[in-house]
Design a protein around this nucleic acid. Structure first.
Length: 123
DNA sequence: ATTCTGACA
DNA sequence: TGTCAGAA
């Protein structure tokens, strides 16, 4: 077995890996972090960012809201705030959050199979 | 080579 | 969002 550094641990991804997954430039991910308090990758080794799978999931949802549904930064931020708030309510609203995510995933799937090879919808 | 921060367009 | 400078 080879040595496992934090940066090579499959549980954590660096900004370059995440940028390829969500198909946005690294500096855009840093900008989103300033706008979305929900995204908080941990920093180590100085300032290196290490994203958890959950962070990537949130980033994927943000890209969908911004590029596919053409939400504004404020609109997407509120949408995510409401989603997390619904989950935090805990009053049997967990299903609401799952339903919301399923709706976004379904819409995203339609975009991917609509015949347009470009997921983000712009270049 | 890769990423970071801050700043400007 | 894109690009640059200077540093780690």
């Amino acid at each position: 077995m080879t040595t496992r550094h934090p940066a090579s641990d499959p549980r954590y991804l660096n900004i370059g890996e995440v940028a390829q997954i969500v198909n946005v430039a690294p500096h855009v991910l840093r900008y989103w972090e300033k706008e979305f308090p929900q995204i908080r990758p941990m920093k180590r080794g100085g300032n290196r960012r290490f994203y958890r799978p959950g962070d990537v999931d949130t980033l994927l949802r943000i890209r969908h809201l911004l590029y596919d549904r053409r939400f504004t930064i404020s609109g997407a931020r509120e949408h995510l705030r409401q989603s997390s708030d619904a989950a935090a309510a805990g009053g049997g609203s967990a299903q609401e959050l799952l339903d919301d995510i399923h709706r976004e995933l379904l819409d995203l799937h339609r975009s991917l199979t609509a015949g347009s090879p470009d997921v983000s919808g712009h270049e």
